[in-house]
Simulated assay, not measured.
Amino acid sequence: MIKKLLRENRLDDIVDRNLKTNYDRKEVETIIQVALLCTQSSPEDRPAMAEVVKMLQGKGLAERWAEWEQLEDARNQDFPLMSSHHYLWAEDSSIDQEAIQLSKAR
C-alpha cells in the first residue's frame, strides 16, 4: 500500500495532515524508501545499519531502491497472488522468527 502511494507520488496521503505542506517531500520520500528496504520479509535482504545511515545521508539509496524495485516487480510477475503479502503459513509457523532475524551479524 505505501509503495503504491509512493509510486503515485501521493505523499500527502502518508504524512500527518497536521503538518499540512510544512515538510520536505524529498526527505519524506527518502525515509519511506529506507523504511521499506528495512522491512523486507527476508532478513538477509535488509540493509545493515551502517548502510541505512548512509542512505539517510543520501548515499547509495537510489541504486539500492532501483535494485529492490526490479526484484519486487519480478517477484510480482512470477507470483502475482503473493503480491498481497498475506501468507497463511506465517501465522501458525513453528519457525522462531526472532532467531532468524538475529542470526546474521550486522
Results as ranks from 00 to 15, higher is better:
12 D>A: 06
12 D>H: 12
13 D>C: 02
14 I>F: 15
14 I>W: 12
14 I>C: 07
15 V>G: 06
15 V>H: 09
16 D>E: 14
17 R>C: 06
18 N>C: 09
18 N>A: 15
20 K>H: 07
20 K>G: 04
21 T>I: 01
21 T>P: 01
23 Y>E: 07
23 Y>F: 09
25 R>D: 14
26 K>D: 14
26 K>G: 12
26 K>Y: 09
27 E>T: 10
27 E>W: 01
27 E>A: 14
28 V>A: 11
28 V>N: 10
28 V>G: 02
29 E>F: 05
30 T>L: 09
30 T>W: 08
31 I>T: 14
31 I>W: 13
32 I>G: 12
33 Q>H: 04
34 V>E: 08
34 V>Y: 03
34 V>I: 07
35 A>T: 15
35 A>Q: 10
36 L>P: 07
36 L>S: 07
37 L>P: 00
39 T>H: 03
39 T>P: 06
40 Q>F: 03
40 Q>Y: 01
41 S>W: 14
41 S>R: 13
42 S>D: 14
42 S>H: 05
42 S>E: 11
42 S>M: 09
43 P>A: 07
43 P>S: 07
44 E>D: 14
45 D>G: 14
45 D>Q: 08
46 R>K: 06
46 R>G: 06
47 P>G: 04
48 A>I: 04
48 A>G: 06
49 M>P: 03
49 M>T: 00
50 A>H: 11
50 A>L: 02
50 A>P: 00
50 A>V: 12
50 A>I: 01
51 E>T: 01
52 V>H: 06
52 V>Y: 10
52 V>I: 13
53 V>R: 04
54 K>V: 03
55 M>D: 08
55 M>G: 05
55 M>R: 04
57 Q>I: 08
57 Q>Y: 06
57 Q>F: 12
58 G>K: 05
59 K>P: 13
60 G>T: 04
61 L>R: 09
61 L>T: 05
61 L>M: 00
62 A>I: 01
63 E>W: 09
64 R>H: 02
65 W>K: 02
66 A>C: 00
66 A>L: 00
66 A>Y: 00
67 E>Q: 14
67 E>S: 05
67 E>D: 09
68 W>K: 08
68 W>R: 08
69 E>M: 05
69 E>T: 07
70 Q>K: 15
71 L>E: 15
71 L>S: 02
72 E>T: 15
72 E>C: 13
73 D>C: 11
74 A>H: 04
75 R>I: 11
76 N>A: 15
77 Q>V: 15
77 Q>H: 10
77 Q>E: 15
78 D>H: 09
78 D>L: 09
